[in-house]
């Protein structure tokens, strides 16, 4: 059964609210003296108030896509295509212009706050630096803003926290500080890279609740990078599934996780243990190395449905928000 997809019925209404759109975004990295593609022809948008999942396993290009969107790709990376943030094309901008834009309009939440936050700077200093720089406030006003936002994300005694250091906090509290920092400059888009993966399950639930509350309260667009389809189903409105640099499937989060059209997406779902102890159905083989992607469909060597046709790279319908890159999809797309 396929869920009805609200966005297919009213794409025009959401398009005007779009905070970010990638069109044919590609990233290549210099490896051993040649440019090797790591992300190819990725297109999707994020609108205000919606959570879009970028799903895939390690090496699929999801984090690289995110770093291209915030303008912090690895050194030497070649980013092509179009990237529109709040109606402006940003790929042609200088790094200085990008930085200014990034802090103000895009907030970023990393998986491991310990590596993203400075270990020997007081939390208050890190937050007020960011706020002063991006919002042009005085140090005193920035401190008040930091207290306010720490309070909003549920941190008790925020003034005391500002005097402390990251290592003094628990994993859950660190992630709250990270979220506060991302929200401190009133962004319209927040990109979260596996924000709950390193957290215990009871804390993960708290952080997901917080992120959902923030999304509604500030009408934020959220790009949620994850490998966990349960989180996608539970937290996100739409899903973009990536495999070896390609978008292989795109649609509503409910549709993609309940009735996937791409054999890879279904493989991912079936590989996760459920409530029964029936033998798991793993995807055979392993993800191909970057730079050694097969010709044609990149999933074909691991796919039971592959045939001669799959030697040609399948296209993805750019017009339709619900689309699959497969010659033999599991279900006809409505």
């Amino acid at each position: 059964m396929k869920m009805t997809d609200p966005e297919t019925t009213m794409p025009a209404a959401t398009a005007s609210q779009e905070v970010m759109r990638a069109e044919g975004l590609s990233v290549a990295l210099p490896i051993d003296g040649r440019m090797v593609p790591v992300v190819t022809d990725v297109s999707f948008g994020v609108s205000r108030g919606e959570a879009v999942a970028l799903v895939g396993e390690s090496g699929c290009g999801k984090s690289m896509t995110a770093s291209a969107i915030i303008g912090l790709p690895p050194r030497g990376a070649q980013v092509t295509g179009r990237l529109i943030v709040n109606g402006r094309e940003v790929l042609g901008l200088s790094p200085r212009q990008r930085r200014k834009l990034c802090g103000n309009e895009i907030g970023f939440i990393f998986q491991e706050p310990m590596t993203a936050l400075h270990p020997t700077l007081r939390i208050g200093r890190q937050m007020t630096d960011t706020i002063c720089h991006n919002l042009g406030l005085s140090r005193r006003a920035a401190t008040e803003r930091a207290v306010e936002i720490l309070d909003t994300v549920g941190i008790p005694r925020p003034r005391a926290i500002l005097q402390g250091y990251v290592h003094q906090l628990s994993g859950g509290m660190r992630q709250r500080v990270m979220i506060a920092l991302a929200l401190s400059c009133e962004p319209s888009l927040v990109i979260a890279d596996e924000p709950t993966t390193a957290l215990d399950v009871t804390i993960q639930a708290q952080v997901l609740d917080l992120m959902e509350r923030m999304r509604k309260e500030f009408d934020l667009g959220m790009l949620f990078i994850t490998h966990d389809l349960e989180v996608v189903r539970d937290f996100c409105d739409r899903a973009v599934v990536m495999y070896s640099g390609d978008v292989v499937e795109r649609g509503s989060a409910a549709g993609v996780t309940r009735a996937p059209a791409h054999p890879y997406t279904r493989g991912l779902i079936e590989a996760v243990p459920g409530e029964t102890t029936d033998r798991l159905v793993p995807i055979p083989g392993s993800v191909p190395q970057i730079g050694a992607w097969p010709e044609g469909c990149r999933f074909a060597p691991r796919c039971a449905r592959a045939d001669a046709k799959c030697r040609t790279h399948p296209p993805l319908d750019a017009e339709n928000p619900t689309a699959v890159r497969c010659w033999h999809p599991l279900e006809e797309i409505a």
Binding site: E57, S58, H227, G267, L268, E270, A271, V272, P273, R279, L280, V281, P282, I283, P284, S286, V287
Partner: peptide, 14 residues
Amino acid sequence: LDVSVQAQILNLLG
């Protein structure tokens, strides 16, 4: 491990 590989290893351990 990634989920697709995790399933292989869980089956193997079993």
